[in-house]
Design a protein around this nucleic acid. Structure first.
Lengths: 118, 118
DNA sequence: TTATTATATACCTATATAGGAATATGTCAA
DNA sequence: TTGACATATTCCTATATAGGTATATAATAA
């Protein structure tokens, strides 16, 4: 079997770096396809194709504006990724590293109390 | 061209749902390959293969223990994903939704002051 | 109408999977 | 040693991309 489809969920859609770039541009606001082509230096068909994937997983919405199509970010579609990461945050959080320091201090104090002089 | 390699970064490694499942098990602590096979109901070779991908992107570390190999999570490798999401959090945060409510209220008050009676 | 601009789709190709099955490697026990 | 267990690797196949190029569709302008 091949890989899970890119349009399966936000995880897969966002695995492609150029699609992340597109989203990063759209955070600032609505953009036409051509804007994205210019800003990212990609070929127009590939931009359209990436946008289709992003649209299929709900990461962007479109609006017709004359002959342009304005794409706009829908950040909510990223929440499942953020939610999944919740269980792991503690592993790199400053707050937890601070806690680790405290625990290390406690251990050292214990060791000192225990009598190890070296 | 095909898709970006699964071993390119955490984004791609984690796009595969079964690899996320493996990580979800490892949050609780170290596990042998067979533990994972049993807990997840997957075939042993596929588990080994998924673990290889996770190892190549630094998401897990291994330790030899007799004939077992104990795998352990390295959550730090997920931080780049979390960092990337930082720019988007505001779009689904309660705090921002609360702010939206406030802004809506303001708008309504304005409208009322403006004289729209209907 | 025709031309021009903006975007989407179709077609082609190379490539990297993920799973299944078989087998290799490695470690311990008898 | 031989056998049993634990894990990794190899080989095979079907499939879904991503990029390139060409073309279709759609909307405006002349």
């Amino acid at each position: 079997m091949a890989r899970v489809a890119t349009t399966t969920d936000a995880f897969n859609a966002v695995a492609e770096p150029k699609r992340r770039q597109i989203l990063d541009v759209l955070v600032a606001g609505e953009r036409s396809v051509n804007d994205l082509v210019t800003l990212l230096g990609l070929a127009q068909p590939q931009v359209s194709k990436h946008l289709r994937v992003l649209r299929e997983v709900g990461l962007v919405d479109v609006r017709d504006d004359g002959r342009q199509r304005m794409y706009r970010l829908n950040g909510h579609a990223l929440k499942p990724i953020h939610d999944w990461l919740k269980n792991y945050e503690q592993m790199w959080n400053d707050r937890f590293e601070a806690l680790d320091d405290v625990l290390d201090d406690l251990k050292q104090t214990e060791a000192a109390d225990g009598g190890s002089s070296k």
